[in-house]
Design a protein around this nucleic acid. Structure first.
Lengths: 192, 192
DNA sequence: GCATGATTTGGACAATTGTCCTAATCATGC
DNA sequence: GCATGATTAGGACAATTGTCCAAATCATGC
């Protein structure tokens, strides 16, 4: 296999295992077995565990940007774009109930480990926050744009967190409906 | 030292280390060193790591009940009781920014580990949810009590989660103010 | 002050961890 | 078809993990 594709394959599998089992609990051996390569070959691509983590965070940053760009391309109205974000909770509710939000749980774990890459992981939140802020700004919310963006982000995180603990999928549906109602209320308040 | 107090001391230190560094990342050795006992003595009290985790969850459940009872004793009005819960976020904002919410992060980690005790840990959320529900019921919110209780809980979780990632203490203050405003809005809606 | 059980000690244990190395195998250009 | 560099394999390594044990020390009742 070409080097680039092997490398890509390792990152993809590490990404998935980090999400499902956590960063610390996932070993070199776990990734190597799942990627069907030897541990020695693994070392050829990544010298340390932090290097893989770094690559995984890079991948998530890239994929997040792609997803956000996709929503902008597909939905012309800012409201529909924000709704697309909120409904991620519904689309991913099975994995969320099993393993939580990929962003939130990684940030939480790295905070506990006091890991050097915790700020980089938090950048994924930064992407969402900035993008949501832009959407609210496009809706006409100038001063409140940042605040509302963080609010939507925090709300989603809370829903994911509680859904993981309580294993309640209906709760996600209800909260998503509430967030949407809140959003429309904000939008309505702008035209006054 | 008496056996009961040694045991209690171990649990107390394990509780703190689990919170600050996570369950998996905290080793028997870490706890033993911090508790100033030998690893052998540790084994005298707890045969497996799951046993300590179980004891720590028990302690957290007990302390949560005590805290909730305390709020009920100190504040006669349900609104003030709920506000006391919300303001936990402010009182504990330094540790929250460093290590997240003790309940949410433990539940998230145990979910990833697919740990047998994950339901027991989620019971701590259950205590808060049930207590908040009772307060809303006392305010006159019958049908909505459960929904509002879970909403407050999720909101708090989201604030903690984002504050940990962004290391933003002011964000906590703003969101706590928003939750309080929301609460008063709900209360006002009940008297109509 | 002796006997008994509770408590503590220090280390053994097999397994697993992240890291690192050497030798083999592969692909490619000439 | 040979030489060269990229890729892979397999295992060594010291450290750490959770678990477990036998022997020593302690406290207490008689």
């Amino acid at each position: 296999m070409a080097a680039a594709s092997t490398r890509h394959n390792i990152i993809e599998i590490a990404d998935d295992l980090f999400y499902r089992g956590g960063f610390e609990a996932t070993s070199f051996a776990d990734i190597a077995v799942k990627a069907s390569i030897s541990r020695g070959n693994f070392y050829y691509y990544f010298k340390t565990k932090d290097e893989i983590l770094n690559a995984v965070i890079d991948r998530r940053l890239r994929r997040t940007r792609t997803m956000l760009d996709g929503w902008e391309a597909q939905a012309p109205k800012p409201r529909e774009r924000i709704v697309a974000f909120i409904e991620l909770l519904i689309a991913n509710r099975a994995p969320i109930m099993a393993h939580g939000c990929p962003v939130g749980t990684l940030c939480a774990e790295l905070a506990k480990l006091d890991h050097v890459h915790q700020e980089r992981a938090a950048e994924i939140f930064g992407l969402f926050a900035h993008w949501l802020e832009e959407q609210f700004r496009a809706l006409g919310a100038d001063e409140a744009a940042r605040e509302w963006a963080l609010h939507v982000l925090a709300w989603s995180q809370g829903v994911a967190s509680l859904a993981t603990a309580l294993k309640d999928g209906d709760f996600i549906r209800r909260e998503v409906a509430d967030i949407t109602t809140w959003l429309d209320g904000r939008i309505a308040s702008l035209s006054n």
